[in-house]
Amino acid sequence: MEQVLFWLMAVVAVVSALTTISSRRPVHSALAFLVTLLSLAVLFLLLSAQFVAVIQIIIYAGAILVLFLFVIMLLNAQSGEGPQIKLPSQRPLAIALALLLFGGLSYLLLSSPLGAARPLPAGMGTVQAVGGILFNHFLLPFEVASVLLLVGVIGAVVLTVKEDEQPK
């Protein structure tokens, strides 16, 4: 059962990721990326990370990607890529580099011994466990993260408000 689910989701994730980067229409790219996100959420569930899986859907699929679609539709950019290619060697070079990266990463992963998985603590991945760690061991980073988000909000407002329509 677990095997079937893992391989199914792995194939779905890779195929939808490939569709994401190869689709001509940006909206289809975003939709394929949505499928990748959902399959990753299922994989998180398999890894006993329930809370992460739900947050992945709420934040990534429910907010970040919707914002992407919003901007894609706002700009109504079709392919968005001009016909003239300024760098002829871009395509083969990019594919070669990505393959090299994958080869290097898998070589490193396969050559380093992982050993047997340690036993999971009770309540792994539940809201209580995540909250306990987040607010005990990571309190300062948590607060800094909120400041980072505030900076992001202010930055977006400053960047997109036009000069002639400054709020009174």
Binding site: Q50, I57, I58, A61, V66, V127
Partner: peptide, 23 residues
């Protein structure tokens, strides 16, 4: 375990239907 959060997660996907239908 995540109960009500799961409902929020599932319904947040509903926004795609609306925005895609419009586009």
């Amino acid at each position: 375990n995540v109960g009500i959060l799961l409902i929020l997660a599932v319904t947040s996907i509903g926004a795609y239907g609306v925005i895609l239908g419009g586009w």
